[in-house]
Amino acid sequence: MKEMFPERAYMKKGEIKQIDKDAFERIRGTNRVKRGFARMTKGGVIMDVTSVEQAHIAEDAGAVAVMVLDKLPIDVRRAGGVARPASIPIIKEILDTVTIPVMAKCRIGHTYEAKVLQETGADCIDESEVLTPADEWRHIWKWDFVTPFVCGALDLGSALRRIEEGAAMIRTKGEPGTGNVAEAIRHIRLVNDGIREIKAHYKANDTQQLMAKAREMKVSYEIVVETAALGRLPVVNFAAGGISTPADAAEMMLLGCDGIFVGSGIFKSEDPLQRASAIVLATAYWDSPEVVYEAQEMVNEQKAMLGLTGPEMKFSMQERGADS
């Protein structure tokens, strides 16, 4: 039976289990439950929100989840200083008013911040380069949490390093707050090219080269083989960082992403509900150009977020974090 569904084998590895001592013998925090949560968001759009009002608009537009943060990425760049997670009362209020999953961002390597977010009841924690990294050397050891984590990656090596630290979901880093999809495209292409390469070694039975790749990427040989055999990342992989139009979303799906994160693109535009609905439509129907056309027709380029480039960007978020 196990050979029938090889992509499910990983679900038994390195997990934390919490067994409730009630009559039902529930086991919480298993890999199956954490990575399964991410699998339920596939084909959907996760939207950055900073207030209850925005969370309502996102839910109404058909968001599959909301991501709560204190400032949208473009404002993080403008404000400068240290960017930290959203205020707890705002997270709590959003948790109480929307029925879709609520995610929240914590700083890279800040284990205690993540513990606090787990206490709020947030459904998923994003260890995010949008906030100022707290630990220059390490990411959070995410196996220790019952709550699933999503982490950014900019190539196959960084994706696999995060998965080996316990991330239940990966997203491209892209370059948040720029309104420019180019970096997200670059990152998913690097992930795809990396997988194609190890898959070729795997097909050729070249164990030595697979080992060399594992050393190069600073990950275990096992996860390289697992990924090569699957021909894809062993967890759900979303696109993030610079997606602003329905066609941007469809492009990322075309490149093999499982779903879409939209940050500043929605609530920094002048037509948020319209734009959010259009991105949801384009993501669900990404392989039907005539529907993506309809979605693209729903938004007005003149109302799009202007975005930042060059020196205005001030700094690159994708390079932040240890072992990025």
Binding site: E25, R32, V33, G36, M40, L95, D123, P148
Partner: peptide
């Protein structure tokens, strides 16, 4: 059952499917 941290696995007895318990995966 509440939020994601309360998602769980538990075996279920389902007579229609025979004696072997069915692995129940409950996510939100």
């Amino acid at each position: 059952y509440g939020r994601q941290r309360d998602s769980f696995e538990r075996p279920l007895t389902i007579e229609r499917l025979g004696n072997e318990p069915f692995p129940g995966v409950f996510i939100r």
